[in-house]
Each structure stands twice: as C-alpha cells, then as structure tokens.
C-alpha cells in the first residue's frame, strides 16, 4: 500500500513536470526559439535536452533509489549514428537528456499531436514512415543528414524499432545503417540497462521503491570514415550485432566518479 502510494506520487510529479513544465517553463523558450533563433533546429534540440535533463534530475530527487551511471565515453559522442537497445519508453528521453544535439526517428503518428508534432518537426526529428504528408519531412531530413552529422550532431536510433521485453536481440531495421553508410559517419553502439525496471512496459506507474541504477554504456564503434573499402549495410549490421553480443553488460567497468 505504501509502495503504491509512493509510486503514484512520484509518477504524478513527473507527469506534472512533463506537461505543465513544458507549458509554463519551456513553451515560452520554444516560442522564442521558433521566431528568433538563427538555427532553429539546433535551438529546439538544445531545449529538449535541457527539459529532459530537468526531468531526470527531478526523478533522482523524487525516487531515492534511482541513480544514473553514464559512461563518459557516451557523453563525449558527437557526429555519430548511435544505435541502442530499447527496453523502456524512458530510453529515448534519456538519450535526449545526454546529447545536446540530437535527432532520432520517431513514430509517425506523434507528428500529428498538438505541440509535440510541432516540436518534433522543428527539432529535425524524422518520422518513421515516408508516405503521405511525411514524404517531404523525411526527404529534407535525409538530404541534410550528412551535413548535420559532420557538424557534430548525433542521430540516435533503436534499430529493433520497438521495446524488447524478453532480453533477446531482435531483428534490426537497416535505416540507421543505410544513413551511416551513405554519410560515412561512425556507428556507435551503446547499451541502456534497467530503464525497464523503473518504467516497465505495460505499467502506468513508475516502480520507485527499489534500488535501481540505470546505466548507459558505450560498447563499441565502427568507424566508416577509416574503412578502406565501402562496407555494405548488411556487413555493418552484422558487425553491430557482434559488438552488442561481444561484451557482457557490466556497469561496474564504468568508474564511479563519472556517475551522474
């Protein structure tokens, strides 16, 4: 009973931050960015980054057992196509909180939601489908991707496309790898652990009364700019899967003084 009450209170506070925080604290900043920013896309990405940093800072205050341990090698990533496992709805917002300049591929339906759709478009995020009204958006996003990556921005993608509940590695969609290959951008493989313990698929409430260290680790890199021969997309996927499988997931290898 006490656990459920604590779960409800923490979830409620974070939802309030998510909705009213957006409306009252960040909407004015988004509006200013929309009308005045020289580089609107960059400004929106930065605001998203700040908003979700705030979200996780608040989560760590409200949920005493919740800590974040981020591999410093992850926070240094730039100009890369970042591929990551996907176990919880918290994964994309955690990655936005980690990278100041970030783009990702988002479920197309979200682009028709009020405010969210506007934010996604102006942040330069890509819809997952390119049909109908999304064609132009995907076309512009893909056309400018090489320049975006070479200027230091990151594109993060969950190649399995959906959250995994069984701990196994699913089939990879090739979109992110085609983009990396085309742009000759490095592919960075990272792994998120334990966001599913905090916000489990199929549950409405956060699981707050447990000690839970959410970890983000850098597992490896495939540097396409250094590859002598043009590597095929299939080979790129094969190498990425090998990196995912290569090392056991051991957050202990990340030094404690770098935990955030």
């Amino acid at each position: 009973m006490i656990k459920r009450t604590v779960d409800i209170i923490a979830t409620l506070f974070l939802w309030i931050y998510f909705t009213l925080g957006h409306l009252f604290f960040f909407l004015p900043a988004y509006l200013l960015a929309a009308f005045l920013a020289k580089d609107r896309e960059r400004a929106f990405q930065h605001l998203n980054h700040l908003f979700f940093r705030g979200f996780f800072a608040l989560a760590q205050i409200l949920i005493p057992g919740f800590t974040l341990k981020i591999d410093p090698a992850v926070t240094r990533l730039h100009g890369s196509v970042i591929v990551c496992n996907h176990v919880s709805y918290f994964d994309p917002i955690l990655l936005i909180a980690l990278f100041k300049r970030q783009k990702t591929i988002v479920k197309s339906d979200f682009f028709s939601f009020p405010f969210l759709g506007w934010n996604l478009k102006l942040s330069g995020y890509l819809p997952a489908t390119a049909t109908g009204s999304y064609t132009e958006l995907v076309y512009k996003g893909i056309s400018s991707m090489a320049e975006y990556l070479s200027s230091g921005g990151n594109l993060f993608v969950f190649p399995e496309g959906t959250r995994r509940r069984d701990g196994k590695m699913g089939r990879f969609n090739k979109g992110a790898f085609s983009i990396a290959r085309k742009c000759r951008a490095p592919v960075q493989v990272i792994e998120i652990l334990n966001t599913d313990r905090l916000f489990s698929p199929g549950h409405a409430l956060l699981n707050t009364c447990i000690a839970n260290r959410v970890t983000v680790m850098h597992k490896g890199e495939i540097d396409l700019s250094r590859a002598q021969k043009k590597i095929s997309t299939r080979e790129l996927i094969r190498q990425t899967r090998r990196i995912f499988k290569k090392m056991p997931s051991t957050p202990e290898t990340i030094p404690d003084n770098d935990a955030r």
Binding site: V138, I142, S178
Partner: peptide, 12 residues
Amino acid sequence: GFDSIDAIELLR
C-alpha cells in the same frame, strides 16, 4: 528490404 529511407535516397 527496400525501405522508406532507401526510397528517399532513390529520389535524390
């Protein structure tokens, strides 16, 4: 496995 990103690349 020709996906939507491939289709956009083809248009370019």
